[in-house]
Structure formats: C-alpha cells, structure tokens
C-alpha cells in the first residue's frame, strides 16, 4: 500500500471532519440548548461562502473578507432567531422542521437571485497557496492544513466558551431550566439569540474555509446538512464532544472509503466486481456506520445527561 497516499487521504479526511464539526457543532448547540431543530443551518453555511466570496472580490483580500463576513453571518443568525426560531420554540419539532424547510427554500432562492445559478470561485491567497514539507517526499497544501488548524481552534474555543466562561455558565443553566434563569434576572431571550448567532457563525466559518477549495455554490448547504445530521445523531444530539468525535470519524470513513474501498474489495473478489461495488458501498458507508452505531446505542455515542 502507498503510505504517502494514505497519509494525504487521512489529512483530507481530517479536513472534512473539521468542516463537518463546524457545521454540526452549531446544530447540536442549537438543539441541545434551545431544543430547536434547524434544517436551514446548511443554508447559513452556504451564505458564509457566498458572502465571503463577494467580499473577497470587493475588498481584494480573502483575509479581510473573512473578518468582515464573521459579524455579518452572526447578525444573520441573530435575525433568523428573532423572526423564525423564537416564535417556534413552544411548538413541536414537526413545526420546526417545516418552518426551517421553508426557510431553506427562501434563503436558497434569494442566494440564486443575488449570485446567480453558477458558483463563485475564490482564489487562494498567495501566502496560503504553498505546500508544507512534512518529510522528504510528503507535501501537503498549506491551505488544507490551515482549515484543520482553524477548525481545531474553533472546537476548543467552543468547549472553553461553554464550560469555562460566564456566558457558557448562563447558557448551560438556561438549557437545564429556562424559567429559573429568567427568574434570576437574566435576559434569556437575548441569551438564546446569542447562542443561535454563535451556531450560525461556526457554520459560516466552515463555508468561508471551504469556498477557496470547492467554490461557493447553491447546492453546497443541502449537501453538507444531512451529513451533519448523521454526525450529531452518531455523536448524541446536544453533545459538543460527541459531535467532535463523530465528525472526525465520519470525515475519515467517508474519505478513506472512497479512496481505498476498491483496493480492499479486490482482496476477496474479482477486480471488476470490486470496481463496480466499491463506489456504491462507499457512498453508503457513513449511513451504514450510523445504522450500526444506533442499533447498539440508540441515543448516539455521547448522549447528553441533561434533559
């Protein structure tokens, strides 16, 4: 087996895992704390990519575009919470699903109106476009490494925010007993809107990071959102730690499955049969893994103790 290829694919898997975590952590945070199912989370990821792309061309700098996009996405999340999520908190999950499904159609169509049907590519800035030598014959693109690093920083930042800050303390308190926290004089509505904005920003960051590699496109949000669902189901809905573990696991399984499953199948079946069946099986691999894990742990790997 080619170990260089394996290492590169492992890094690609980590990159996918980190992006999945950024999207899934927002989802799981919003669900775990607000008990709200947000299907439109993928659309915010897409908006992050498009807004960043437009700003990159307007400002002629990817870095400034990212810095400016962050508050814009946070505000979008905040407004989304006030107008759509807040009236639905008291309703059942079915209404959340339908309402945010409507929001997806609205956001995607608005994106279509503003940016047109074709995607927008962002050039990787020169200072990030190089390769980093790991050993003599192994090089990895700087930008992909950056994605992994930023994702890890965001992951630990989120864990720190939720577990070790005053805001995090209020958020956790609000999740376990809203009425009590409100009675203690905390503005619980604003608190929840802030949580929503944080979740949206995390998804937006993922969109901004992936845009220079794939490009900002209309279907991107809907492609990632289901995988993000698989991540939070496997990790245990509401658990940030679970989302982290499951995101890396799924990123690796998906990437490695696509590149090595046919080699693996060739060990015990004919080449033709392996080449025919491997793409089909690898496209299903993460769902099969989800099925397997759920049949042993119906509430995911790390079911949250609250509730």
């Amino acid at each position: 087996m080619d170990y260089t290829l394996l290492l590169i694919q492992v890094l690609n898997g980590l990159q996918l895992g980190v992006l999945l975590f950024l999207v899934a952590s927002g989802l799981t945070l919003i669900f775990g704390i607000l008990d709200f199912v947000n299907l439109a989370h993928g659309s915010i990821y897409m908006l992050g990519a498009f807004i960043c792309a437009s700003l990159t061309y307007a400002l002629d700098s990817y870095l400034f575009a990212v810095i400016l996009s962050l508050p814009i996405i946070a505000i979008i999340g905040y407004v989304f919470e006030i107008f759509l999520a807040r009236p639905l908190y008291a309703r059942d999950h079915l209404d959340h699903v339908l309402g945010t499904f409507g929001a997806i159609l609205v956001i995607d169509t608005i994106a279509h109106l503003i940016w047109g049907p074709a995607g927008i590519a962002i050039p990787i800035p020169n200072y990030l476009d190089g390769q980093i030598m790991i050993s003599e014959n192994i090089e990895i693109p700087t930008f992909r490494l950056l994605i992994i690093v930023v994702g890890l920083i965001a992951a630990f930042g989120l864990l720190w925010l939720v577990n070790f800050t005053k805001l995090g303390m209020l958020i956790r308190a609000g999740a376990s007993n809203r009425t009590m926290v409100a009675a203690l004089g905390i503005d619980i509505r604003t608190l929840f809107a802030i949580v929503f904005a944080i979740g949206a920003t995390l998804a937006g960051i993922a969109g901004m990071l992936i845009a220079p590699i794939t490009e900002a496109s209309l279907g991107m949000g809907n492609n990632i959102i289901i995988t993000a669902f698989v991540v939070i189901i496997v990790g245990g809905i509401g658990s940030v730690k679970g989302a982290f573990v499951a995101a890396l696991l799924i990123g690796l399984i998906d990437t490695l499955g696509r590149s090595f499953l046919d080699d693996l199948f060739k060990v015990f079946m004919s080449t033709a049969a392996a080449e025919n069946s491997a793409p089909a099986i690898s496209s299903m691999s993460i769902y099969l893994m989800m099925a397997l894990i759920l049949s042993f742990k119906p509430k995911g790997l790390f079911p949250p103790r609250l509730r």
Binding site: D95, L98, G99
Partner: peptide
C-alpha cells in the same frame, strides 16, 4: 424563483 413564495407560504402556514 417560485421556491421563494412557496417557502414564505410554508413559513406562514407553520406560524
């Protein structure tokens, strides 16, 4: 762009 009014209608129905 019919998904736009359709989506708005869906939200209105839910709300």
């Amino acid at each position: 762009y019919w998904h736009l009014p359709f989506g708005l209608l869906l939200i209105a129905v839910v709300l």
